[in-house]
């Protein structure tokens, strides 16, 4: 089976003080159709740069080497149609002075060539699919009238308008409280399954990633440190940095004696 997306030797550099600063260093990674891959890393690991490179959204001064290929697509991938993107801050990705139904409809019109009436009907359908209550009324609302979680649902609706092959969620739940985060995670998981999309789930939270991903890729300082099945990465990683991330995870179960990976208890020192 050919992959949905194939990255080979992907490097991104930015001009800095006299030298080029490497943001991403020779990344090889395939994502299969329908597969859920999590990219885990801390600040400066290159995880967001990877997402931007895939979506061709890098700033103009970025120097890119290597290839981003979409086998089976037979043309260049387009944002909104082949790639759906959900960012961290829905307040920044939504137009504050446009009704949310219109914002989703505009994506349909621009990328699918739909007429305005059909596009608006589709927007209401999608608001229902992302479980916004009373979608017909919700379509008339402006972003500021919605909660953070509701705004992220709208952003997700806009991202899946074109039935993309790949949904990229870049820290899509990081600004939300844990209860809303769990709801949005469930929504993303359900939509990815229903639409048969591939998912690139970018996060700093390895526990969160392990709940949704088939595979986890760990990034550090622009390099792919380790990639493998989620269960293997959280229970038996090979790279010391992955161990460090697992150690640093503050689980709620640790003291109840049911933490999956014993012997790595970062909290014991804090609690002692």
């Amino acid at each position: 089976m050919s992959p949905c997306l194939s990255l080979r030797g992907l490097s991104v550099r930015y001009p800095g003080n006299k030298t080029l600063v490497t943001a991403l260093d020779s990344i090889d990674l395939d994502i299969a159709a329908g597969e859920r891959v999590a990219i885990i890393g801390e600040s400066g690991s290159g995880k967001s740069t990877l997402a931007l490179a895939i979506a061709n959204l890098l700033p103009g001064n970025a120097r890119v080497q290597g290839t981003v290929e979409w086998p089976g697509l037979g043309r260049k991938a387009e944002n909104g149609r082949d790639i759906g993107f959900v960012f961290q801050d829905p307040s920044a990705s939504l137009d504050p002075v446009m009704r949310i139904g219109d914002q989703i409809a505009e994506v349909a019109r621009a990328n699918l060539g739909m007429g305005w009436r059909a596009a608006q009907a589709l927007a209401i359908q999608l608001l229902d699919r992302v479980r916004l209550p009373e979608p017909r009324l919700a379509a008339q609302a402006f972003p500021h009238q919605l909660s953070g979680g509701q705004k992220q649902r709208v952003a997700i609706a806009a991202a899946i308008v074109g039935k993309p092959r790949l949904l990229i969620a870049d820290e899509a739940t990081s600004a939300l409280d844990t209860i809303v985060q769990a709801e949005i995670m469930a929504l993303i998981g359900r939509l990815v399954t229903e639409e048969g999309m591939s998912l690139l789930f970018i996060s700093h939270d390895i526990a969160l990633a392990s709940q949704i991903a088939d595979r986890i890729a760990v990034f550090r300082h622009g390099r792919l440190v380790e990639v493998g099945p989620a269960r293997q990465i959280v229970s038996n990683p090979t790279d010391p940095y992955t161990w460090l991330l697992l150690d640093a995870h503050l689980g709620i179960d640790a003291h109840l004696g049911i933490d999956a990976h014993s012997g790595v208890d970062a909290h014991s020192e804090i609690d002692a």
Partner: peptide, 26 residues
Amino acid sequence: IIGAPSSATARALVAAAPRLLGSETV
């Protein structure tokens, strides 16, 4: 609070806390 939450809010917070795969046995 974490082991035996009595309020609906605490129960929801506990249920929503991210857990590493393989440790979801609370």
